[in-house]
């Protein structure tokens, strides 16, 4: 029981201080789980983190569940996931409750019009970064453009676009990735 409470509290703290989610929580995990609690080594955290990026779903929840499972099996996984999610739920509910009362004020709507521009810029820079990592050859370019166009021009559910791309990768991935490997070996 004590270890479950500890897991909940550690991940509560991580959720509380991870601004922006998944990518910012790695240093927090290092500090809490490797340095303070000494539950795992630094390498193990990195492994779980990589694994979480390969699993569907929210990266932060994935990492927490992996570490919780490692520590205390199924209950540990569930408790850790709840821990990392709790601060978000509380903070956002409070903000959502307050902000709806303010949105009709003129100054607030001006501010949000400016903020929307910033959000577009932030998202686009993130896309540029992700593009370098995930679009590695011509098949990826085709998948990228196809899913972009399908999403902009049609109302197909993103679920099917994701499924289609996953199947394409499953079928053609080996060939593409091996060819790329060869090229790298030669150069």
């Amino acid at each position: 029981m004590k270890i479950l409470l500890e897991l909940y509290w550690v991940f509560f703290k991580v959720g509380m201080f991870a601004f922006g989610g998944g990518y910012t929580m790695l240093p927090l995990l290092q500090k809490e789980i490797v340095e303070k609690k000494k539950w795992l080594t630094s390498e193990e955290i990195i492994d779980y983190y990589t694994l979480s990026q390969c699993s569907p779903g929210i990266i932060a929840v994935n990492v927490s569940t992996y570490i919780g499972f490692k520590k205390k099996r199924y209950l540990g996984g569930i408790v850790s996931a709840l821990g990392v999610a709790t601060p978000s739920i509380i903070i956002i509910t409070v903000i959502a409750a307050v902000i709806t009362n303010f949105l009709h004020i003129k100054e607030v709507s001006y501010a949000f019009a400016g903020i929307r521009v910033a959000v577009a810029a932030l998202v686009i820079v993130t896309i540029v970064d992700m593009y370098k990592k995930s679009v590695v050859d011509w098949l990826c370019i085709i998948l990228y453009i196809t899913s972009f166009l399908l999403s902009v021009l049609t109302s197909i559910s993103p679920v099917f676009i994701v499924l289609g791309a996953g199947i394409t990768g499953l079928v053609l991935g080996t060939r593409m990735r091996e060819r790329k490997g060869d090229k790298n070996d030669i150069s």
Binding site: I127, M130, Y131, C140, F148, V162, I167, G173, T174
Partner: peptide
């Protein structure tokens, strides 16, 4: 690994459409 290889660019395409 193969599935993820296909998923990443498509997911990015969807995010770009949202942008």
């Amino acid at each position: 690994l193969n599935t993820m290889y296909g998923l990443r660019p498509a997911s990015l395409g969807l995010i770009s459409a949202a942008a």
